[in-house]
Structures are given as C-alpha cells and as structure tokens.
Design a protein around this nucleic acid. Structure first.
Length: 261
DNA sequence: CTCCTGCTCG
DNA sequence: CGAGCGGGAG
C-alpha cells in the first residue's frame, strides 16, 4: 500500500488516478439513468479526486481505528460503529482494545463485561450478542484470527455487509466500495444519480460505486475515507456546505444550488 | 426534536 | 418493504 496511515495514499496525480479507475465501467453504469453526459461527468469527477484526497489529508477525521491495518482492530471498530457516531466510539475504543486485544479475550469475557464496555454506545443487547458470537466463531473456527473473506465476516449475528466490506477494504486493502445512506447521498448528488430507496440492496449501486474506487490499496483506502468524511462534514443531508467542497466543480447538485442562488 | 461508518425480523 | 433497536450529543 502506498501512503501512510491514517488515510492512505493522498497525493496522487490525475494521471495516476485515471490508471486506477475503470472509467468505461463507470460510464456504462450511468448510461441508462437520467444523466445527459455520463462521460463528461465521470471525467470531471476523476479530475477532482486529487483535490478530494488532499482535502482528506487536512480535514479528515483522525480516529484510532484509522491508524492501523490490524484486522481485529479494524473489524471490532466496524461493529462498534454501526449506526453510531465516530466520536462516541472514539471515547471507548482504547478501553475496548485494552480489555479485548484479540478475539479470544472477547470469547473469554463475561457478558456483563462486554455489556458494560459498549453501554455508552447504545444498541447494547444487539452489540453484546454480536461480540459474543464473534468471539466464539473466530476462536472455534478460525484459530482466534479474523477470517479473510466476506462470507465468514458476515456470519456472526448482526455482522453485515458494510462491516465486512469495511474490514476487507481498510485492513486487507481490497478496493471495495462502502454503501450506506451517507455514501449514497454524496455519490448520488455529485453524479446526479437517482438513488433507489435502499441503496445498499441495489446491485446497480454497488456496481457504480465499485467502478469509482481506485484499485491501488492506499488509494482505495483514502478514497473511501474521503467520501465518508465528506458525507459527515460537508455533504450533509440538510444545508450542505458546497462552497467548501473539493468536488464542487464536478458536482451536479452543487451546480444546481448555484443556479438557484 | 434529530441524527449517528447498520442490520434483522415480520 | 417498514419497524425497531439505543444512548449521547447538538
């Protein structure tokens, strides 16, 4: 992987980005939508990505689980982060890793111990059961290691697609895209793509997002963090701050906003 | 009051 | 599909 932690490879040129993205695949994904000029849009998007990555370098959120590619530190963080603010997880994360530095420590812990650890995050019953099952499965079937496949990572109850893909992306360097409400909103606005009601259940959405992710692991990591942080800090559901967005020159939505000013 | 790196169940 | 889970922060 090129580039250092926490963000990955954040100083790539447009040429380098272009070599790492399947432009044709992305254009095809936009063809049958309401978009008028898919190729122009994708090209404009690609040309903004260096700015997007340098925006991440200075404005990205520096959480402890971004400082590592250790699969356990990443995967356990993803479970804690489900429907939960990063700042809330950051408050307990170091404590959690001290108590449960490996899946085996979780396996040997009492339910009360786990419950107390995750209490401040909410979803207490859910998370306790999930973490318990993760400990059991990883110890009994994977020698206490975090498995290296999406199928195995989604086997524990309430360990789903997003968490598994995030682990493979951030810990193993696989060029996957994450699909959730935030992510879909950002990509949907930028490319003028009409997102379905449940984006994470649409194969078309995954296909589009995946086409946009740079293949090089360090770039894939940085790209995903950048979109994630854009959704949280700039491209918010209401009152997005388009003026300070690194994608404003490529963004269909920001263009419309300017016209109505 | 809403929202947060989702996911399962009916 | 929709409902429900949940505490904490704004």
């Amino acid at each position: 992987m090129k580039g250092g932690l926490p963000f990955g490879y954040t100083s790539a040129s447009v040429a380098e980005i272009r070599e790492n993205i399947d432009t044709e695949a992305a254009v095809v994904c936009l063809k049958d939508t309401a978009v008028d000029h898919p190729r122009v849009l994708i090209e404009a998007f690609i040309e903004c990505i260096p700015d997007l990555l340098s925006w991440l370098e200075t404005n990205g959120r520096d959480y402890p689980w971004r400082q590592t590619t250790d699969p356990w530190k990443v995967y356990s963080a993803e479970i804690l982060l489900q429907r939960t603010r990063g700042d809330a997880v950051a408050d307990i994360y170091d404590d959690f890793q001290d108590h449960f530095p490996t899946p085996r420590d979780l396996y040997e812990a009492s339910e009360e111990e786990i419950r107390e650890m995750v209490h401040s995050l909410g979803f207490v019953n859910h998370r306790t059961r999930t973490l318990k099952e993760i400990g059991e499965l990883f110890v009994e079937e994977h020698a206490g290691k975090v498995p290296d496949s999406l199928d195995e990572l989604t086997r524990p109850w309430r360990a789903g697609t997003y968490s598994a893909r995030a682990c493979q992306l951030f810990a193993r360097g696989e060029p996957l895209a994450l699909v959730d409400a935030n992510y879909s909103r950002v990509i949907g606005r930028v490319l003028g793509y009409q997102m379905p009601d449940q984006p994470h259940k649409s194969d078309d959405v995954y296909e589009l997002m995946e086409a946009l992710v740079p293949k090089e692991p360090g770039l894939a990591r940085a790209f995903n963090f950048a979109i994630l942080d854009l959704g949280a800090l700039i491209c918010t559901p209401q009152n997005p701050r388009c003026e300070t967005c690194p994608l404003q020159n490529a963004c269909v939505y920001a263009g419309k906003q300017q016209l109505t000013d």
